[in-house]
């Protein structure tokens, strides 16, 4: 019983820690499957975290915060789209710019508006997303193992958590089974094929980039308005890049990306619990080693030492009609 309890708690914090990764990973997946490389996930989440915290504070509504977070993130993703799609600029360069813009702007504006070194004032009550009790928790509690798991790990999360999971399902569904999904998969592999089939390459890519922005918006909002009670400078702390790693790890597919994010979230959860704990046979594992694991694993995977990461063929390449 004790063990189940512990597992459920770990699973619970795994899910909590995975949500921002999940949102950003789905965001990156949309963008990159359409052929637009995005290393600006971090910056978009950051600006969304800031915008959502500000608006949630001003209006007292977490949902208004979410709208603002999504709007701010989409605005930045449109900047990326303008540079990458319309002006065929270097997508990596644009991503670096977006990250720096977000890192600087959030602190300056936060400091100018609230004077707390870039933080926003703490959010209370309806300005934060509350925990949602799923139905039948009490009824199912008595079932061994599954009951507590449902109670602790599955139920009792905030709305963005369930929204994020829903986004995974939607991403997988839309990519695989819809017209838009087919065209999107095609445009990331061979934009000329899409163009000659009479479909606008730029249009598809812009839609993908906007979806990417919206998902980053959800992730950033979760950080500031659900996980924490307000915005802190640099609060994304590299999550956008771990999400990028998760996308690569999953070979640009939604379900594996979900598992990669959960795995990285689990590592994070374990790292927190293992602080100062000696493991039998291994001794004390430095927390930093666990924290570095997602990055190391991604490098190893990219180098083809385990499996092979195959990005969409046209990703990163601006589309130019051939003569």
């Amino acid at each position: 019983m004790e063990l189940v309890q512990t597992l459920a708690v770990i699973l619970d914090s795994t899910i909590r820690l995975s949500v921002p990764l999940l949102c950003a990973a789905m965001a990156g997946l949309w963008s990159e499957r359409a052929g637009v490389v995005d290393i600006g996930l971090e910056g978009k989440m950051l600006i969304a975290a800031f915008a959502s915290a500000v608006i949630a504070y001003k209006t007292g509504s977490a949902w208004a915060g979410l709208c603002a977070g999504i709007a701010a993130s989409v605005a930045l993703s449109l900047v990326h789209g303008f540079a990458a799609i319309t002006w065929r600029g270097n997508q990596i360069v644009s991503g670096v710019a977006i990250n720096m813009l977000a890192a600087g702007l959030t602190v300056i504006l936060g400091n100018a508006w609230f004077g707390q070194g870039g933080r926003t004032p703490p959010l209370e009550g309806a300005a934060r997303f509350g925990e949602i009790e799923l139905p039948l928790v009490e009824t199912l509690k008595s079932i061994p193992i599954l009951g507590p798991l449902y109670d602790i790990a599955v139920s009792g999360h905030a709305a963005p958590v369930y929204l994020a999971l829903l986004c995974v399902v939607l991403t997988a569904l839309v990519l695989k089974h819809t017209r838009f999904g087919l065209r999107l998969r095609a445009v990331g592999e061979n934009p000329a094929a899409v163009d000659t089939a009479g479909v606008s390459v730029a249009g598809l890519r812009y839609v993908a980039v906007i979806i990417c922005g919206a998902l980053c918006g959800l992730g950033g909002t979760y950080l500031a308005v659900s996980q924490s009670a307000g915005f802190l400078p640099q609060m994304t702390a590299g999550k956008g890049f771990i999400a990028l790693a998760a996308v690569i790890f999953a070979n640009w597919r939604p379900w594996p990306a979900l598992f990669a994010c959960l795995l990285f979230g689990l590592l994070d959860a374990i790292a927190i619990r293992l602080q100062g704990v000696a493991l039998p046979g291994i001794g004390q594992v430095p927390v930093q080693a666990i924290q570095a694991l997602p990055y190391v694993m991604t490098v190893v995977l990219l180098a083809g030492f385990i499996g092979k990461a195959v990005p969409p063929k046209a990703s990163g390449l601006p589309y130019v009609k051939e003569r």
């Binding site: 990458a84 002006w87 600029g89 644009s94 813009l101 400091n111």
Partner: peptide, 20 residues
């Protein structure tokens, strides 16, 4: 006006002189 303004300027320069 904190020094983060330089980060913003850096970002915009990268955007303008690089991506755009």
């Amino acid at each position: 006006i904190t020094r983060d303004m330089v980060v913003v300027i850096g970002g915009v320069v990268i955007l303008f002189a690089g991506a755009l």
